[in-house]
């Protein structure tokens, strides 16, 4: 059986992610707050597949969001690029099976994302919301995104292990053996 090209699966995955984010996620609104599903997707892929994949995925999906919704082209692309990179770097340094760490890490990345939006879109326009921003926007979003990744992260982890992971040399040798038999 010929394997489906990995690139195609990635494209499909992120296209679905963006589609979900703009069409179905708003239905998950709780108290006016939506989880950032795309961020979970980019961070998870970054953790699994390394910074190069995470970065590219983040940059491209960010760019698509920019074209659709952003006021400045490159605004979302930049933050998702950074998120993909950080996730990939940290993921390759501290890869653990333990689920608590990635979830906290994703929440942290969402925090970063919120701060970035706040600083560049509100602070620069002299809108100093301060505590209000933390209590009513950032904190709920971070918590909701963190909780949501409890569901999404294991699914993505499974998908990656089964379909996307590059086989190691020993596994390839094993496979060759079984074919020869």
């Amino acid at each position: 059986m010929k394997r489906v090209p990995r690139l195609l699966i990635y494209c499909l995955l992120f296209f679905t992610g963006i589609l979900l984010q703009v069409s179905l996620v708003p239905a998950l609104k709780v108290g006016g707050i939506v989880p950032n599903v795309l961020l979970i997707l980019i961070a998870s892929i970054g953790i699994f597949a390394g910074e190069l994949t995470g970065m590219t995925a983040g940059f491209l999906s960010g760019l698509i969001l920019d074209v659709l919704f952003g006021n400045l082209l490159g605004f979302y692309a930049l933050i998702y690029l950074l998120i993909g990179f950080i996730a990939g770097k940290v993921g390759s340094l501290l890869y653990v099976e333990d689920i608590k760490f990635p979830l906290l890490f994703i929440a942290f990345l969402d925090c970063l994302y919120g701060l970035y939006c706040f600083v560049f879109q509100f602070l620069f326009q002299n809108r100093l919301y301060g505590w209000y921003f933390f209590r009513h926007i950032l904190l709920p979003e971070v918590i909701y995104t963190g909780l949501f990744s409890v569901i999404l992260y294991p699914v993505l982890s499974l998908l990656y292990k089964r379909v996307l992971r590059e086989k190691t040399a020993s596994e390839l040798a094993e496979e060759e053996k079984s074919v020869l038999k």
Binding site: G50, D66, V67, L72, L73, G74, F75, A77, L78, L81
Partner: peptide, 29 residues
């Protein structure tokens, strides 16, 4: 990857500056 990061970040910033200053820059996108 660090060079790619730098490159793409600069590209993002360049895009932001261009869209901010040139009206209609984003229309092909």
């Amino acid at each position: 990857s660090r060079y790619l990061l730098l490159l793409l970040s600069l590209l993002c910033i360049l895009l932001m500056v261009l869209t901010f200053n040139i009206r209609g820059f984003a229309s092909p996108f």
